[in-house]
Amino acid sequence: MRDSTPAEKAEALIRRYFAACNDGDHAALVDCFTKDAVHYFPPGLPGAPWRGASAIADGWVWCVKTLGSRWTIEKVLAAADGREAVIEWTHWKTAIGEVLRGDEWYIFNDDITKIHEIRAYYASPVDKAEPVNKLHDFDYEARGYALRPPSPAPRNL
Rank of each mutant, 00 (worst) to 15 (best):
D3V: 10
S4R: 14
S4Q: 15
S4P: 08
T5F: 08
K9L: 11
A10D: 11
A10K: 11
A12L: 13
I14S: 04
R16M: 08
F18A: 05
F18R: 13
A19R: 12
A19C: 03
C21M: 14
N22E: 08
D25T: 05
H26S: 01
A27F: 10
V30L: 08
D31H: 06
D31A: 15
C32T: 03
D36M: 05
A37G: 06
A37Y: 09
A37F: 10
H39F: 10
Y40Q: 08
F41L: 12
F41Y: 14
P43H: 01
G44V: 09
P46S: 07
G47K: 04
A48R: 05
A48Q: 05
W50N: 11
R51D: 05
S54D: 15
V61N: 06
W62V: 00
W62A: 07
V64L: 08
V64I: 13
K65L: 02
T66R: 12
T66Y: 10
T66W: 06
G68P: 08
G68Y: 02
R70Q: 15
R70W: 00
R70I: 02
R70S: 02
E74I: 02
E74H: 05
E74K: 05
E74V: 02
K75R: 14
L77H: 13
A78R: 04
A78C: 02
A79P: 03
A79R: 12
A79T: 09
A79M: 06
D81L: 09
D81Q: 10
G82Q: 09
R83F: 04
R83H: 14
E84H: 14
A85K: 06
I87V: 08
W89C: 01
T90H: 00
T90V: 09
T90L: 01
H91E: 14
K93R: 13
K93S: 12
A95D: 11
A95S: 14
G97T: 05
E98M: 13
E98G: 07
E98Y: 01
V99K: 01
R101K: 06
R101L: 04
E104A: 13
Y106L: 04
I107M: 06
K114T: 03
I118D: 02
I118W: 06
R119H: 13
Y121C: 11
S124M: 12
S124F: 02
P125K: 01
P125S: 00
V126C: 07
D127M: 04
K128D: 13
K128N: 10
E130F: 10
E130C: 12
P131F: 04
P131C: 03
V132A: 07
L135G: 03
D137N: 15
F138V: 11
D139Q: 08
E141D: 14
A142G: 14
R143Q: 15
R143D: 15
Y145T: 04
Y145N: 08
A146S: 15
R148D: 14
S151F: 00
A153H: 03
P154S: 09
R155W: 00
R155Q: 11
